[in-house]
Amino acid sequence: MSTQTMKSDEEFDQKCANPDGCKTIDLLIETSEKDLGGFTVRRVLPTRQRRMVGPWIFFDHMGPANFAAGEGINVRPHPHVNLATVTYLFEGEILHRDSLGSFQAIRPGDVNLMVAGKGISHSERERPEVTQVAHRLHGLQLWLALPEADEEIDPAFYHYPSADIPSAEVDGVAIRVIIGSAYGATSPVKMYANTLYVEAHLRAGQKITVPNAQERAVYVAEGELSSGDTLISERSMAVLSNAPTIELTATRDSRIAIVGGETMSKRYVEWNFVSSRRERIEQAKADWSAQRFPKVIGDEDEFIPLPQ
């Protein structure tokens, strides 16, 4: 899902800063709220200064949003190519359908991995049982750029219930290893490039050492962190340096996401498409305009037109 229109390759408007004298942080990214009609989304990646962190090329913080009865998320069918989407909810539920025939409710703690490969279409709505009462939605949605050798693989869908995602306590800090390996635990979620995704909950005063990876960043969904004298405020991301040991301290009770992985080659981004080849994006745009993508099974009547 892209809950707001993805801009063309060079147009991203988040505020970024290079913290002076901080050896552990290369870049601070501040997010701005986008009101999508009762639903707030914050775009974190990509930015002009930083396109990717490891294979992660898109990072959206959805909500928290409170919906009255009869309202909710209602994202019509739309396409993707050459990427994989990762949906992870803190609160609420999203109903996923796609052109493979997948029909899956995503609930808090679950990991939803949809591999677009050579092309997939999907929709994200809510079950009537959810929308008929007042409810709340809060979570993260990220996109992974597939390695060049895997960009045109067959599309696939993987769902991992919350109980399958490893959790542990590290020096009193509650962590979940969502993708990759960290803190002695390994996630079952399928990887293509070397990938890191960890969720952690810290109480004020607690510290966490960031796992090693070629590229790393931390996003503060709730709370506030510090690295030395540099603060990482709520709803902002710190792209971390290659310092061998980086320790972060919670200045308030915090929920954070640590993401990263191996360095990837350049990717082009437009709307819902990501590719190492600009001409592949142009082809995907033409295919969607001509309705050559496969239809979402069970949701065939509507679609989001290609933005002009």
Rank of each mutant, 00 (worst) to 15 (best):
Y158D: 00
A149N: 02
F157R: 00
A116C: 07
G92I: 05
E129V: 07
Q104T: 14
E129K: 11
R136C: 14
R97A: 00
M114Q: 12
S102T: 13
A145Q: 00
L95M: 13
H80A: 13
A149Y: 10
K118P: 02
L144W: 02
H122W: 11
G139N: 00
S99R: 13
E148S: 10
K118F: 08
L83P: 00
N82W: 01
E124G: 13
A105L: 14
L137F: 12
I94K: 01
E91Y: 05
T87V: 04
Q132S: 14
E148P: 00
E93M: 12
L83Y: 09
G117E: 03
R107L: 07
T87H: 02
F90R: 04
I120V: 13
G117D: 08
H96S: 10
E152N: 12
A84K: 07
Q104M: 13
N112Y: 09
P79K: 07
V130G: 05
A156H: 04
V115Q: 03
D98P: 08
H159K: 11
L89H: 02
V81W: 05
L146E: 04
L137Y: 02
E151Y: 00
W143T: 06
S123M: 02
V115E: 06
D98S: 13
E126R: 11
R107S: 15
N112M: 14
N112C: 09
H122L: 10
G109T: 04
E91Q: 15
E91L: 07
A105C: 15
K118Y: 06
G139C: 06
L89F: 03
A84H: 00
D98N: 13
Q141W: 03
V81E: 07
N82Y: 12
E129N: 12
I106W: 11
P108C: 09
G117S: 14
S102W: 01
S123Y: 02
R136P: 05
V81F: 06
S102R: 08
L146V: 02
T87M: 10
E126K: 04
L137K: 01
A149S: 13
I106C: 11
L140C: 04
F90I: 13
I120S: 09
E151D: 00
A134I: 02
L142T: 10
A149H: 13
H96G: 07
L140H: 06
G139K: 01
L140W: 09
H96Q: 10
V133Q: 14
T87N: 08
L83W: 06
I120E: 01
L95G: 02
W143S: 07
H122A: 07
A156E: 11
P79H: 08
A116W: 03
A145M: 01
A105S: 15
G117V: 10
A134P: 03
L140D: 00
A84D: 01
P108I: 08
I120A: 06
S121M: 07
Q104E: 12
H96A: 12
T131Q: 13
P147D: 04
D150S: 14
S99L: 09
Q141A: 03
A84F: 04
Q141M: 00
A156C: 01
Q141I: 06
P79A: 09
P128T: 08
D98A: 12
Q104C: 14
P108L: 09
G119H: 08
E151V: 00
D154E: 14
P155Q: 08
I106F: 05
